[in-house]
Amino acid sequence: MSEQAIYVYAQWNVKVGKLDEVLQILTQAAKKSSEEKGNLFYKIHQSKSDQNTLILFEGYENETALEFHKNSENYQNLVVKEIVPLLESREVILMDQVF
């Protein structure tokens, strides 16, 4: 695995009527994710034109830290089991910094 920092861009389109529930769960998930070893940042943004569109921008020290995050109890329970069923769609892009 690469020792280079890795960044995650995730666009979540929340089902109508589920935004408050998603934001409540996401607050917990963000706090716990930010405390993980190897996490550089965990930022949540909301579209100005569509409040049901959330953008997550996350940074990890390396791929090992990202894999730890994805396999964490926090991610599996809060994001995969609770939040994903409340989404219309989700796109995740992994990125390396170019310059």
Rank of each mutant, 00 (worst) to 15 (best):
D96S: 11
H69M: 02
K31P: 10
I25R: 12
Q97V: 04
Y60P: 00
T27V: 06
N62E: 13
L26Q: 01
H69T: 01
D20S: 06
K31H: 10
E67N: 11
K48T: 14
I55H: 09
Y7F: 15
E3Y: 14
G38F: 04
L40D: 09
F99T: 02
D50N: 15
V80K: 04
T53W: 01
E91D: 02
V79R: 03
S47K: 00
A10Q: 05
H45G: 07
N13G: 08
Q51K: 12
Q46S: 01
H45R: 12
I25F: 08
Y42Q: 01
E35M: 13
I25N: 08
A65M: 03
S34D: 04
H69G: 09
W12A: 02
E3V: 13
A10C: 03
S34E: 02
S49C: 07
K15E: 06
K43S: 10
L94Q: 06
T27P: 09
V98W: 09
V80Y: 08
Q11M: 15
M1W: 15
S72C: 03
K32N: 11
E21Q: 05
E36W: 05
L94N: 03
V79S: 01
I83Q: 00
A30I: 06
E3H: 14
L40Y: 02
Y9S: 11
F99W: 05
S47I: 02
V98Q: 13
Q51M: 14
T27R: 15
K48D: 08
I44R: 14
A30Q: 05
S89P: 02
F57G: 02
N13D: 13
N52F: 04
G59M: 06
M95L: 15
Q51N: 13
Y75C: 11
I55K: 08
L94C: 08
E63Y: 12
Y42H: 05
R90D: 00
V8F: 10
Y60T: 12
